[in-house]
């Protein structure tokens, strides 16, 4: 992680951006910087139409419609969360049934035995009284599953990424918008892709090293 003391200095409007010396080698990818959400939206549409696959946009907040403009498919996260919820509901029932309404034992590292807890002459299988705990475990496992699956699907935590080495990229979490095309994309070509990015009128173009 770069910690240059000066990279939080704002770039003043209209400042000419000095390029890194032109390099022939591809690096990890090419990054173009844009000033406002409308530009990144237009750039994303062009990049999608060019047929790139290994590319991404980086914005300080979720720009609405940008995921559609990039052609990102809907995530399967809701289904995974549903799975977490169903697990919670079922385990909530099983837990209470085993601990309060049975008397058999099973082996889980140590032998554990249920206890048929007869209280106030109530039926052993007191499902209505178990609803609150079943509900809470449904929510608990859905929420924990939601965050866990989100991180897995996003490949996070990821403490190193080539983009994070660029001092310019620090403003992706502040007020700038970036389009990154990776060199492993089958359509990537050091010269032509750079020319394509230039045609989008970015504020700057940078070659990212791995």
């Amino acid at each position: 992680m770069t910690t240059l003391p000066d990279f939080i200095q704002p770039v003043t409007e209209g400042e000419t951006v000095t390029e890194a010396p032109a390099v022939e080698k591809a690096g990890w990818g090419l990054m173009a910087e844009f000033e406002n959400p409308a530009q990144i939206m237009a750039a994303a549409k062009s990049a999608r139409d060019q047929g790139f696959r290994w590319w991404d946009t980086h914005t300080p907040y979720p720009v609405h419609g940008l995921d559609k403009a990039m052609g990102i498919k809907p995530t399967i996260l809701p289904l995974l969360v549903l799975g977490g919820g169903a697990t919670g509901l079922l385990s909530g029932f099983m837990l209470q049934w085993f601990t309060n309404a049975t008397s058999f034992d099973f082996w889980a590292l140590v032998p554990i035995r249920g206890y048929d807890f007869l209280i106030s002459g109530k039926p052993l299988l007191s499902t209505p009284a178990w609803i609150p705990v079943m509900f809470e475990l449904t929510i608990l496992l859905s929420a924990v599953g939601c965050v866990t699956w989100l991180l897995i699907l996003c490949g996070l935590p990821q403490l190193y990424h080539p983009t994070l080495r660029s001092p310019r990229f620090a403003r992706a979490t502040d007020d700038r918008f970036f389009l990154v095309i990776e060199s492993k994309d089958p359509k990537f070509h050091p010269e032509r892709t750079k020319a394509f990015l230039e045609s989008l009128n970015p504020m700057s173009i940078e070659t990212l090293e791995d």
């Binding site: 994303a44 995921d67 991180l151 996070l156 935590p157 403490l159 990424h161 983009t163 992706a172 979490t173």
Partner: peptide, 8 residues
């Protein structure tokens, strides 16, 4: 966690 504002 390495968040970088990726649209994906």
């Amino acid at each position: 966690l390495g968040w970088r504002g990726s649209t994906r």
